[in-house]
């Protein structure tokens, strides 16, 4: 009984971690857009290349945050959650 519950729990945690990383799609699209626009801007005005580049990298880093939230949730689900959930499960089955 406990083994079955444990197996289901660990499998679902893995699935949850995978689902959490769907959050990576958004920043990917957003950063791609940002870089595309920055390339256009540099093509139009090559003299402001350094300004555009630094602003773009800033914006990319901020856009990345949502993806990183997903990553942190996934890491918590893989490394931290099993330890704490196992105790709860044992208590519940007893």
């Amino acid at each position: 009984m406990l083994e079955l519950a444990m197996g289901i729990m660990l499998g679902l945690l893995g699935l949850g971690a995978g689902c959490a990383m769907i959050a990576g799609i958004g920043p990917g699209i957003g950063e791609g857009n940002a870089v595309a626009k920055a390339c256009e801007a540099i093509g139009r005005q090559p003299e402001c290349k350094s300004d555009v580049t630094s602003t773009m990298i800033m914006g990319c880093a901020i856009a990345e945050t949502t993806g990183l939230y997903g990553l942190i949730v996934a890491i918590l689900l893989i490394f931290v959650a099993p330890g704490s959930f196992t105790g709860i499960l044992k208590e519940a089955i007893k």
Partner: peptide, 16 residues
Amino acid sequence: ISMAFRHYGNVLSGAV
């Protein structure tokens, strides 16, 4: 929170 998690997440993901 966002400042802390941004920095931590980037470095940790690199390490992982």
